[in-house]
Structures are given as structure tokens and as C-alpha cells.
């Protein structure tokens, strides 16, 4: 089953901005409780949307430049990219149904 892939700064542009299909990026950090709660939901979605949406995780601790490029000041933040552009920005824990709605819109 497809799983979200942890992505370093150096590979972000190639993997996310040049992707042919929509991409969901989960900005997280190990110290953040709600981030650890979002993770299993994102894992499930990665399985359900395999082939339709790519899933990546950005550890904001290790990659502060990407977080600041997209104005992330609160985690967890999930951003959906389409053709290199952010099309949805969701701050904080969201129920799975709400995330699915945003993904459906992006597909």
C-alpha cells in the first residue's frame, strides 16, 4: 500500500511542484501531538488515493525553508498542490471526511 514519503528540501521542487498529479504535503514535527494524530489519517488516504494523489511529509524541524516559503506557522498543516500551485491549505487536525472533500476537489 502507498505510504506518504518523507521528503527533504533538496527534492521538494522536483517531487511536488513538477508532479503530474495533485500532491498532498503534510507539514509536521515530532514534538507536535496533533501531528501524530493526523499521521494515521494521512496514511489511510495515501492508500485510498494511490495513483491519483501523491503524498509527502515535510518535517519542519529539518526543513524550515520550505515551511517558511509556504507561510506555515502552525502544524499540522496540510497543503494540496496542483500543477505546482497550492490549492488548499488546512491548518490543524481535520476529520478524514473533510480531507477527502478537499482531495476530491483537487483531482
Amino acid at each position: 500500500m502507498a505510504k506518504p514519503v518523507e521528503i527533504p528540501e533538496a527534492k521538494f521542487d522536483e517531487a511536488v511542484l513538477k508532479a503530474k498529479i495533485p500532491v498532498l504535503v503534510d507539514f509536521w514535527a515530532p514534538w507536535c501531538g496533533p501531528c501524530r494524530m493526523v499521521a494515521p489519517v494521512v496514511d489511510e488516504l495515501a492508500g485510498e488515493y494511490d495513483g491519483k494523489v501523491s503524498f509527502f511529509k515535510v518535517n519542519v524541524d529539518d526543513n524550515p525553508a520550505i515551511a517558511s516559503r509556504y507561510g506555515v506557522m502552525s502544524i499540522p498543516t496540510l497543503i494540496i498542490f496542483k500543477s505546482g500551485q497550492p490549492v488548499a491549505n488546512m491548518v490543524g487536525f481535520r476529520p478524514k471526511a473533510e480531507l477527502k472533500k478537499s482531495l476530491e476537489k483537487a483531482i
Binding site: A29, V60, V91, G92
Partner: peptide
């Protein structure tokens, strides 16, 4: 400004400040 400076979780977001 939620997520742009307004936060409800210092543990999560403190490091951005």
C-alpha cells in the same frame, strides 16, 4: 490569521516563533 500567527497550540507552533 489562524495558522498565520494565531495559534491554539504552543507545543505545536512555538518553534515557529
Amino acid at each position: 490569521f489562524t495558522g498565520r500567527g494565531v495559534s491554539y497550540c504552543a507545543t505545536c507552533d512555538g518553534a515557529f516563533f
